[in-house]
Design a protein around this nucleic acid. Structure first.
Length: 868
RNA sequence: GCCGGAGUGGCGGAAUGGCAGACGCACUGGACUCAAAAUCCAGCGCCUGUAACGGGCGUGAGGGUUCGACUCCCUCCUCCGGCACCA
């Protein structure tokens, strides 16, 4: 049961902050104060409303922001909406409701929910990616990309669903069928816009080094970019003088071990190389491959497939003739689309060679190629010819020598490759930013910047056009236009931009959200950038963060922004799982069974939720108390509607208040970690807030508690306070919110014993609590007699003088085992501490009859006596 | 398969070379109450002996470094996340 009127207090202060614009950040840069820009990943305003994962990161940043404000920083902390996207469009398809209507409704709900949690955003800076005043500048940035040759068109396969008459996003395709309806999906090439992110691959890779990001995220980006060093080598084609096949390899040292060559099925030279006898087989194979999606190609990896073309290539190092195969384990989009296959030293080539009985020649000693490919280091063997030899060299030297030789002979060259592909930047959808492009006589032409925004037109129906084009293609009056320069007839681009576009630069717009002359004012940009702290989910580890970095670098090159990287420090909050669940399994006859056995047997089992006290743990395993031989599955699951374990933050706020929700989410454990929800845990922190309330307010709830007095605090009281100040300050700086809260709980446990309670100490404590539970803190601050908000009060400073104790208790170990403790004055010297330890009653028996061989004293921490 | 991260009481977690289990939850006992809830007080890793009070074991497993290891090094196991024919 609650004693403190959190509902009244929270509404009161939310209204106060709103009306007084307490958290408004001035439009003009404030050079007198250091700036601090804290950004949350803005949400997609879904119809389901906020889930408990949102407030996790948002509370963390809010604590940092409120703390920094009190520390005297000029803080920027904005919020907005990533509002384009598929769900609204799909909803429009089902109900006929305009996505703009749905989006506005959802934004309204999200805003109310976020405000109800007391986050200190500057709401005057709110932006939505769907607002024409916003996407005008998204389109403008696209023009910058286009001008710089970074946007181009290409024919690219899409997921085409004939039954739905539309193109589907990858996540809408499940096992080759449409997610909605289960209709077959095929791959069909369509004209698309691409962004040349590959041009920035090297910089995107290199600039990761200087970022204060989690190592795992940097590593994921590095893997995604996938830089490799190697060589391109030209192979002549036998019987076709002058024609060459270029391959890419990271192992030029193994050239002498190349026993065949593989071309991707889509390789342009396949036809020319195919011998008449093989033509049928090759054609059939290529057709088959073209129908497979990338996923199928890789998922059927158990058995490698391929077909011999009948043609041969000539190995440039020894003039050996090797057969040319076509196989789909080689991809056209990486390297040159052709490889030299060295089965002895490449796992994939090894499998293929085994499959088709192709010779395997060892060229690096160290493995046993009869059993497996050897990819390790070693010394080169079998690697000489009358033209060149690398025998006897270790792998790195062999690479170097052969590459130099190839370059000198004009047969090849050093080459760096990336796994990163260009970014497919168009979608055949309505609810996205229109491209500021028209086609005049079939040629693309950018609109001029002052023609922006190109507003999304109203449309009769959100049904797909049926041709695979976006619904925009059906609005002839919009598509058909004239070139404003020449007056010639023109047609508009009907593709729209992907959802990533708007989120690629929103952090810049927050700096200057109302500017209608520029995306962002350069003076303000230089003041605020880079973002000092960016918090969001790890699901955006690669795509959003890589795309945003790419755009940022383009804008940097274009002189629009002043920093090469947008986000200085990045933190990922961990997912919040549902409550712990204990599951008992029963077979068809209702008999309880141990879940692991039944899973293996593949039998049908029925799940039954049971409560925690029906379960007992033995070792690492949980058992059912009723039948102790039956094992129970104990784990927590991702929250999902279907599992019915979703926690609604509104409900938590209603029952315990926003401060309790905030505090609980921070108290659960380290921010970055995955952790299960526990309603009991919410009650725990709620009790803590109640106790804080009762420290200040009497039973009747009206006035200040009579024990709160303007007296001088004792040394012990000062000490309790300053220990808390130190811990909370350090923990906020390091974003260890769970231990900061624990420190405040420890303080409260002490302070509850005090009567009377010195007001000065209590006031400092309220300031410590304020970033975590701002509503309660504001209310108590006011009741202590302060007019207005505490948001800009100074953060309490630690006085180290209060941290030292007069007497310290030093644990004493004998041979590393704790045997007692001695109490000595704080300033005691090593010799006297050791003497006290040796003389201690608890220690003496352990020293009896033994010699002290070594004495260790860690000042203020511990004594260890080594005896023998 | 490869790359990251993590394994600590009944549960969430704390301690990053120096007293393992802070803080919270759950649980047990007590106070208050006609009673219950709330609140307050006390206890709470496991085993073991006991009169006060000890002793042994213990941070996924095994080994190593050190006066001393949850913490550092090596090998292995399990779980989570990401990538997966990238030549």
């Amino acid at each position: 049961m609650s004693v403190y009127p959190f509902e009244k207090i929270e509404q009161k202060w939310q209204r106060y902050w709103d009306e007084n614009k307490t958290f408004r950040t001035s439009d003009e840069p404030d050079r007198a104060r250091p700036k601090f820009y804290v950004l949350d990943m803005f949400p997609y305003p879904s119809g389901a409303g906020l889930h408990v994962g949102h407030p996790e990161g948002y509370t963390a940043t809010d604590i940092v922001v409120r703390y920094k404000r009190m520390k005297g920083f000029n803080v920027l902390h904005p919020m907005g909406w990533d509002a384009f996207g598929l769900p609204a469009e799909n909803y429009a398809l089902e109900t006929g409701t305009h996505p703009g209507v749905t989006t506005a409704r959802n934004i309204g709900r999200f805003r109310v929910q976020l405000k109800s949690l007391g986050f200190s955003y500057d709401w005057d800076r709110e932006v939505a990616t769907t607002d024409p005043d916003y996407y005008r500048w998204t389109q403008w940035i696209f023009l910058k990309l286009y001008e710089r040759g970074l946007a181009y068109q290409a024919e690219v396969p899409v997921n085409w669903c004939p039954a739905l008459g539309t193109v589907l996003a990858n996540e809408e395709v499940v096992d080759g069928k449409s997610e909605r309806g289960g209709h077959p999906v095929v791959r069909k090439p369509m004209r698309q816009w691409m962004l040349r992110i590959t041009e920035y691959a090297e910089r995107l890779l290199k600039d990761l080094e200087g970022l204060d990001w989690p190592e795992s995220i940097k590593e994921m980006q590095r893997n995604w970019i996938g830089r490799s060093e190697g060589a391109e080598v030209d192979f002549e084609v036998e019987g076709r003088p002058g024609e060459k096949i270029r391959v890419y390899t990271t192992r030029p040292d193994t050239l002498f071990g190349a026993t065949y060559m593989v071309l991707a099925p889509e390789h342009p030279m396949v036809d020319a190389l195919t011998a008449p006898a093989q033509r049928r087989a090759v054609q059939q194979y290529r057709e088959q491959a073209s129908r497979k999606s990338d996923l199928e190609r890789t998922e059927l990896q158990k058995v490698k497939t391929g077909v011999f073309t009948g043609g041969h290539a000539v190995n440039p190092v020894n003039r050996a003739k090797i057969p040319i195969w076509v196989a789909d384990y080689v991809s056209i989009s990486y390297g040159t689309g052709a490889i030299m296959a060295v089965p002895a030293h490449d796992q994939r080539d090894y499998e293929f060679a085994r499959q088709f009985d192709i010779p395997i020649v060892e060229v690096v000693a160290g493995g046993d190629i009869r059993c497996a490919a050897y990819t390790g280091d070693g010394v080169l063997v079998n690697s000489g010819s009358e033209w060149v030899s690398i025998n006897g060299l270790p792998v790195p030297d062999a690479k170097e020598k052969i590459t130099k030789w190839l370059e000198a002979q004009g047969l090849g060259c050093r080459k760096v490759n990336y796994k990163l592909r260009d970014w497919l930047f168009s979608r055949q959808r309505y609810w996205g930013e229109p491209f500021p492009i028209i086609f005049v006589e079939g040629q693309p032409k950018p609109l001029s910047a002052n023609a922006l925004p190109l507003v999304l037109p109203e449309v009769e129906s959100f049904k797909p056009s049926g041709t695979g084009e976006s619904p925009l293609a059906t609005i002839e009056s919009w598509v058909s236009t004239t070139d404003p320069e020449t007056g010639k007839p023109a047609r508009r681009e009907t593709n729209t931009m992907p959802q990533w576009a708007g989120s690629c630069w929103y952090y810049l717009r927050f700096i200057d959200p109302k500017n209608d002359h520029a995306a962002v004012d350069p003076v303000k940009e230089r003041y605020w950038m880079p973002v000092d702290l960016y918090v969001g989910g790890a699901e955006h580890a690669v795509l959003h963060l890589l795309y945003a970095r790419f755009w940022h670098k383009v804008l940097y090159d274009a002189g629009v922004v002043s920093t090469p990287e947008p986000f200085r420090k990045l933190v990922n909050q961990g997912m919040i799982l549902g409550e712990m669940e204990y599951t008992l399994y029963r077979d068809e006859s209702g008999q309880p069974v141990t879940f692991a056995d039944e899973e293996l047997a593949g039998k049908i089992v029925r799940e039954e939720r049971i409560s925690e006290d029906e379960v007992e743990k033995r070792g690492d395993v949980y058992f059912w108390k009723e039948q102790p031989e039956i094992r129970i599955e104990a784990r927590s699951y991702k929250m999902s509607k279907s599992r019915g374990n979703v926690i609604n933050p509104d409900e938590v706020v209603r029952r315990y208040g926003a401060d309790s929700l905030r505090l609980y989410e921070m108290f659960m454990g380290p921010l970055e970690q995955v952790k299960p929800w526990s309603m009991k845990g919410v009650e725990g922190v709620h009790r803590f807030l109640n106790r804080v309330w009762r420290l200040f307010v009497d039973e009747a709830g009206g006035s200040l508690h009579s024990e709160v007095a303007g007296i001088d605090p004792s040394r012990e009281q000062q000490r309790a306070l300053h220990v808390a100040i130190k811990k909370v300050t350090e923990d906020i700086e390091a974003m260890r919110f769970n231990t900061a809260i624990a420190a405040m709980m420890e303080f409260l446990n002490e302070a509850q014993k005090w009567a009377p309670r010195p007001r000065q100490v209590l006031e400092s404590f309220i300031l410590l609590l304020a970033p975590f539970a701002p509503h309660l803190a504001e209310e108590l601050w006011q009741r202590l007699g302060h007019p207005g908000s505490l948001a800009l009060e100074s953060w309490p400073a630690v006085n180290p003088e209060y941290l030292v104790e007069d007497i310290m208790e030093i644990p004493v170990q004998v041979n590393g085992k704790l045997r007692g403790r001695v109490r000595v004055p704080a300033e005691a010297a090593q010799a006297s501490v050791l003497a006290a330890a040796r003389a201690d009653a608890a220690i003496l028996p352990h020293l009896a009859g033994k010699t002290i061989r070594k004495e260790i004293y860690v000042p203020g921490r511990l004594v260890n006596l080594v005896v023998g």
